[in-house]
Design a protein around this nucleic acid. Structure first.
Lengths: 197, 197
DNA sequence: GTCTATATGGCGATAGAC
DNA sequence: GTCTATCGCCATATAGAC
């Protein structure tokens, strides 16, 4: 049983930690966002770090199941990869801070690897196996399944996490222009990894 | 004229800020790493923020000239892109924290965009122009030069900045295995963006 | 469970002797 | 220029009334 107060704290903490990380976040800011006082944060979560770990664990626990069930869809591989891209961009639309948060959290807190692994199930093996299978069938270009997946997620995620710098350097910090580029990414990624001319 | 002490402070600050960011860094830690006391940091740089901005500006000011002169080499485009990849991986070898630092610094401090732009010269336009030119010549597959460059830097940089999470999820946190993967990236990236089967 | 008030320590920054 | 000592503040965390 989870109280209303605990839920409000959790939502506020998610918002603040996602945007500022554990170092940049302030317990007072989380309390304000939750509409309660600082003492309640410690009553429910004891320490700032425990609260942060809970948010990280939730983020990863939500992420993998949300991505993996696409592998189960009965679709041609091109559509399946397209759905994978759509799903990711949809998650990012709902929470623009998620990609940077996941990367930065594990970058600065590698000791949280255990929390992450506990929540990812068979996600990686399923994805790699799926790709290897399609390569055998000849429906996608034969190469290393690991590199294929790495290429896919790189071209999908980097334009998001690197947005502030890429948008600035290559697109004069033009937000609308960059939004347009992002809309074109799906087709561009598919054409590139499937090596369509 | 820059004193020895100032140099030592700068090197220590670079090391600490690169690894921990401005929020995670402590002036005391920088002073210890420099082998001097906290008061000297403020004597030379007045505030933590000014010191941080100086480090960010230096990082970007070093980066672009180091990457752009490859465009001037008289090489076939495949070799030129290969040299671009080599140069980047070489920089990362010397400073593994650089990619994440550059992205995170601008992510959390977008107001530093001005510092960055001031130091990047004509880097972006030169790169895009070079690619557009090669597409006209037909030496690389015709598409959008912007997406081509975005694909290239994505496949190059994401496996570095996302290393903690990618290595964990797809490679069981096996450091040696992941080092091997990174060594294969150059050929893999070239084959993918040039759409070689 | 929820609040106010406070303990406790660490932070960036400065004063001032040398 | 370099140091020690310290200021003033703000952070996390707790005590204790209700």
């Amino acid at each position: 049983m989870v109280s209303e107060t605990e839920k409000k704290i959790f939502e506020a903490a998610r918002s603040v930690f996602m945007q500022k990380g554990i170092d940049g976040a302030r317990m007072q800011e989380i309390a304000d966002a939750a509409g309660i006082n600082k003492a309640m944060l410690h009553y429910y979560f004891r320490t700032k770090e425990k609260l942060f770990v809970a948010i990280v664990a939730e983020a990863f626990a939500d992420f993998f199941p949300n991505m993996i069930d696409i592998a189960l869809l009965d679709l041609p591989i091109r559509d399946k990869i397209g759905a994978f891209i759509d799903r990711y961009l949809d998650m990012v639309g709902k929470n623009p801070f998620l990609p940077h948060f996941m990367i930065h959290a594990l970058y600065r807190n590698p000791e949280l690897a255990g929390e992450v692994v506990a929540n990812m199930g068979h996600f990686p093996k399923q994805i790699i196996g799926l790709i290897a299978n399609e390569m055998e069938k000849g429906t996608i270009p034969k190469s290393s399944p690991q590199h294929f997946v790495l290429n896919l997620v790189s071209m999908l995620i980097f334009p998001i996490v690197g947005r502030p710098i890429v948008q600035l350097i290559y697109f004069d910090n033009d937000v609308e222009l960059y939004n347009g580029i992002l809309k074109e990414r799906k087709e561009e990624i598919l054409k590139t990894i499937l090596k369509e001319q």
